[in-house]
Simulated scan of single mutants.
Amino acid sequence: MKTRLNCPCGEYITGADEDELVEKVQAHLKAEHEGREYDREAILFMAS
């Protein structure tokens, strides 16, 4: 299970599980990187 992702902007995002991680990453993208959107598969591909 992947629960961590390091955004290239320097933000370190963690979740209790993959669902929470995807939710948090999508919220981060919306707030900090307007216009960038990744689906669940892409986020989990980049996560560890």
Score class of each variant (00 low, 15 high):
residue 1 M to P: 10
residue 2 K to T: 15
residue 2 K to R: 09
residue 3 T to K: 06
residue 3 T to N: 09
residue 3 T to E: 10
residue 3 T to Q: 11
residue 4 R to H: 10
residue 4 R to L: 03
residue 4 R to S: 10
residue 4 R to E: 09
residue 5 L to Y: 08
residue 5 L to K: 01
residue 5 L to W: 03
residue 5 L to S: 02
residue 6 N to I: 06
residue 6 N to F: 13
residue 7 C to I: 00
residue 7 C to T: 00
residue 7 C to H: 02
residue 7 C to D: 00
residue 8 P to C: 04
residue 8 P to Y: 07
residue 8 P to G: 08
residue 8 P to S: 03
residue 9 C to L: 04
residue 9 C to K: 03
residue 9 C to E: 07
residue 9 C to A: 03
residue 9 C to I: 03
residue 9 C to S: 06
residue 10 G to R: 14
residue 10 G to M: 02
residue 10 G to N: 11
residue 11 E to Y: 06
residue 11 E to T: 06
residue 12 Y to L: 05
residue 13 I to H: 03
residue 13 I to T: 12
residue 13 I to P: 04
residue 13 I to V: 10
residue 14 T to M: 10
residue 14 T to C: 04
residue 14 T to S: 11
residue 14 T to F: 10
residue 15 G to M: 07
residue 16 A to T: 12
residue 17 D to S: 00
residue 18 E to Q: 11
residue 18 E to F: 04
residue 18 E to I: 00
residue 18 E to T: 02
residue 19 D to Q: 11
residue 19 D to K: 14
residue 20 E to T: 02
residue 20 E to D: 12
residue 21 L to V: 12
residue 21 L to Y: 07
residue 21 L to E: 02
residue 21 L to C: 01
residue 21 L to N: 01
residue 21 L to W: 03
residue 22 V to Y: 05
residue 22 V to R: 05
residue 22 V to L: 07
residue 22 V to K: 04
residue 22 V to M: 08
residue 22 V to I: 14
residue 22 V to H: 05
residue 23 E to W: 08
residue 24 K to A: 09
residue 24 K to P: 11
residue 24 K to G: 07
residue 24 K to W: 01
residue 25 V to F: 06
residue 26 Q to L: 04
residue 26 Q to E: 10
residue 26 Q to S: 04
residue 27 A to L: 10
residue 28 H to N: 06
residue 28 H to I: 03
residue 28 H to Q: 04
residue 28 H to W: 07
residue 29 L to C: 06
residue 30 K to N: 10
residue 30 K to F: 13
residue 30 K to C: 02
residue 31 A to L: 12
residue 31 A to K: 13
residue 31 A to F: 08
residue 31 A to R: 10
residue 31 A to D: 15
residue 31 A to W: 05
residue 32 E to D: 13
residue 32 E to Y: 15
residue 32 E to I: 00
residue 33 H to A: 01
residue 34 E to H: 07
residue 34 E to Y: 05
residue 34 E to W: 01
residue 34 E to A: 15
residue 34 E to K: 04
residue 35 G to V: 01
residue 35 G to Q: 01
residue 35 G to H: 00
residue 35 G to K: 01
residue 35 G to Y: 01
residue 36 R to T: 14
residue 37 E to D: 10
residue 37 E to S: 12
residue 37 E to Q: 11
residue 37 E to N: 15
residue 38 Y to W: 11
residue 39 D to H: 14
residue 39 D to W: 09
residue 39 D to G: 11
residue 39 D to P: 05
residue 40 R to H: 13
residue 40 R to Y: 13
residue 40 R to K: 13
residue 41 E to V: 07
residue 42 A to P: 01
residue 42 A to T: 06
residue 42 A to K: 08
residue 42 A to E: 13
residue 42 A to N: 09
residue 43 I to L: 00
residue 43 I to F: 02
residue 44 L to Q: 08
residue 44 L to Y: 07
residue 44 L to G: 06
residue 44 L to F: 09
residue 44 L to P: 11
residue 45 F to Q: 05
residue 45 F to M: 09
residue 45 F to H: 09
residue 46 M to R: 14
residue 46 M to T: 04
residue 46 M to V: 06
residue 47 A to H: 02
residue 47 A to W: 03
residue 47 A to K: 00
residue 47 A to M: 02
residue 47 A to G: 02
residue 48 S to Q: 15
residue 48 S to Y: 09
residue 48 S to T: 14
residue 48 S to V: 05
residue 48 S to A: 13
